[in-house]
């Protein structure tokens, strides 16, 4: 019990001059958190179910969780295959956006000239409304996976780029001086200092980028597709098939959540040291 109390009352407890980090949440605490989240979700689903029964809203507008699950259960393979298509588009878009965002961040940070020439172009790309460009991309690139990936990349790369660039720049001046005193190369400066320093920032961008990659894929599917959950959603809308629309929407949300969680999990796995830093106020 004292162990628990120590963790809760301020994460740093000075023991003989050493701050004991409380970032490792105890097992009991973890279980309690999981239970709390599960209960919350169950309550929401329960209230939803109850309200649809009590309020008597038109079935076209509101469906109960039970009915939605029923719709899913009638043809799970339909949903799963389309979900896979969407996942595929999201992941490829996200992967390309990550590589592009990080690479461009390095370019922008390492050269002032490249910064003032490339950055305005990137900014314009960011400002152009992607939803408006989407139909054009379908015309250019066809009905396949490609335009969805491109829209996802266009949406997702910018926050990754900006956050990574901020992280690369925010390395302590003194540490860079230290590298210079030791006659370290520019490459060493990046490998040993700037990259690791940028990681927590970059992950902030990656989490944002992942949610945007999901949106990008859906925009692409809305505008023109014959596969994917976005396509299912549009089809359901035109047929006024509310059950199907809800089912697609919920699966889509679940995909977004899981992918976001995967990035967050990867972050905590790769950067155990960053948890404490973040608690101290650095994003």
């Amino acid at each position: 019990m004292t162990q628990l109390d120590e963790n809760r009352s301020g994460r740093t407890t000075v023991v003989g001059g050493v701050r004991r980090s409380g970032s490792s949440v105890s097992r009991n605490e973890r279980v309690r958190e999981v239970v709390a989240v599960t209960v919350t979700v169950l309550i929401i689903v329960g209230v939803w179910e109850l309200l649809t029964a009590v309020l008597g809203v038109a079935p076209v507008v509101l469906r109960s969780p039970q009915q939605i699950f029923g719709e899913f259960a009638t043809d799970p393979m339909l949903y799963l295959t389309h979900a896979w298509t969407t996942c595929y588009e999201i992941l490829i878009g996200f992967a390309i956006a990550t590589v592009l965002g990080v690479a461009l961040a390095v370019v922008v940070v390492s050269s002032r000239l490249l910064q003032i020439t490339i950055y305005p172009i990137l900014l314009v790309l960011q400002i152009v409304p992607k939803v408006a460009v989407a139909p054009l991309l379908i015309v250019f690139l066809g009905f396949g996976v490609l335009p969805k990936v491109v829209i996802g990349v266009l949406l997702a790369f910018f926050p990754i780029l900006v956050n990574t660039a901020i992280g690369l720049r925010s390395a302590d001046r003194e540490i860079i001086d230290l590298v210079r005193v030791l006659n370290g190369s520019r490459l060493q400066e990046f490998v040993h200092v700037r990259f690791p320093n940028a990681m927590p920032f970059a992950f902030g961008g990656l989490k944002l980028g992942m949610t945007l990659a999901v949106i990008g894929a859906i925009i692409g599917e809305f505008v023109g597709a014959n596969k994917g959950l976005g396509f299912i959603l549009i089809q359901a809308n035109t047929q006024v098939n509310t059950d199907q629309a809800y089912a697609a929407l919920i699966i889509l949300s679940a995909i977004g959540l899981v992918l976001y969680g995967a990035v967050a999990w990867l972050e905590s796995l790769l950067l155990p040291w960053a948890r404490e830093v973040k608690e101290q106020g650095i994003p």
């Binding site: 302590d172 003194e174 540490i175 230290l178 590298v179 030791l182 006659n183 370290g184 060493q188 040993h192 200092v193 690791p196 320093n197 990681m199 950067l271 040291w273 960053a274 830093v277």
Partner: peptide, 23 residues
């Protein structure tokens, strides 16, 4: 320097060895 400017992602030993890595 005035601030320790240790590398947050390295252990204390790793930080002490930082100049060795650069050299």
């Amino acid at each position: 320097f005035q601030n320790p400017v240790l590398l947050k992602w390295r252990t204390i030993l790793g930080n002490v060895l930082f100049p060795i890595d650069i050299l």
